Simulated scan of single mutants.
Amino acid sequence: MGFRVSWVASQEIAADELIRTADKQRTKKRDEIPELGWYLLELPPWVLILADGRDSYRDLGRTYAKTLSAGGRETLFFRCSDTFMKTDLRCYRDGQESWSIIYKSDEETKEPTLNGEVPQMVHEILAQLKAKQAHDTADHIYELTAEVGLALTGFRHDADPETSDPRPFQVLT
């Protein structure tokens, strides 16, 4: 089945605002790794809210990130479904998409769609993944959005975040 996860991250929005806007509440429970459900992760200067699992990831969508970006605040939105091998990473500012990376593994070209002025690192990471893909049959390009998300925020949905907190994920309801 694989991962089905979405997250929204910002350096300019407080954790409480992310939680309130998503209509969630903090619990006292913290996890080492996210299971199914909603979580808050603070990786200063970034704050992320994530929805993990089939029943949650669709509820945390682009509209949420777009709304949070009002007033010139930069907000990142990530979504992936390993089941369908589709993934995207989008950056919003002032309620508009500034740039995006969209990838669907089922397309014959195996090329991501890049919109707007993506950060230079996107081209560098893409070149590395293409070089890696040239040597085997795995679809390494699918990793592009997750790798860029990691480079920007320090978080990748399928890896442990670098933090001294043994239980960095705060469970939300």
Rank of each mutant, 00 (worst) to 15 (best):
Q11W: 03
Q11N: 05
Q11Y: 03
Q11D: 04
Q11T: 11
E12C: 06
E12M: 08
E12S: 11
E12A: 12
I13L: 06
I13G: 01
I13P: 00
I13S: 01
I13F: 04
A14E: 15
A15H: 03
A15S: 13
A15I: 05
A15M: 06
D16H: 10
D16E: 13
D16M: 06
D16S: 09
D16A: 09
D16F: 06
D16V: 08
E17N: 08
L18F: 05
L18V: 05
L18K: 03
L18C: 05
L18A: 05
L18T: 04
I19T: 07
I19V: 15
I19E: 04
I19W: 04
I19A: 06
R20V: 14
R20I: 13
T21D: 13
T21I: 13
T21A: 15
T21R: 14
T21S: 14
T21E: 15
T21P: 03
A22E: 06
A22I: 07
A22Y: 07
A22M: 12
A22L: 13
D23H: 13
D23C: 11
D23I: 10
K24M: 15
K24R: 15
Q25A: 15
Q25W: 12
Q25M: 14
Q25I: 11
Q25L: 14
Q25C: 11
Q25E: 15
R26K: 14
R26A: 07
R26Q: 10
R26L: 15
T27I: 09
T27V: 08
T27S: 12
T27E: 06
T27H: 06
K28Y: 10
K28A: 13
K28T: 12
K29W: 12
K29H: 13
K29I: 13
K29V: 13
K29F: 12
K29N: 12
R30A: 08
R30V: 06
R30C: 07
R30N: 07
R30K: 14
R30M: 08
R30T: 09
D31T: 07
D31A: 11
D31P: 00
D31F: 10
D31H: 11
D31E: 14
E32Q: 12
E32I: 09
E32M: 12
E32Y: 07
E32N: 09
E32R: 13
E32L: 09
I33K: 10
I33T: 10
I33Q: 08
P34E: 02
P34G: 04
P34T: 02
P34R: 00
P34W: 02
E35H: 10
E35W: 09
L36W: 07
L36K: 09
L36E: 11
G37D: 02
G37K: 02
G37Q: 04
G37Y: 00
G37C: 04
G37A: 05
W38I: 00
W38S: 03
W38N: 03
W38F: 09
W38C: 02
W38V: 01
Y39W: 07
Y39S: 03
Y39C: 04
L40I: 05
L40H: 02
L40C: 04
L40A: 01
L41T: 00
L41K: 01
L41S: 01
L41C: 01
L41M: 02
L41V: 02
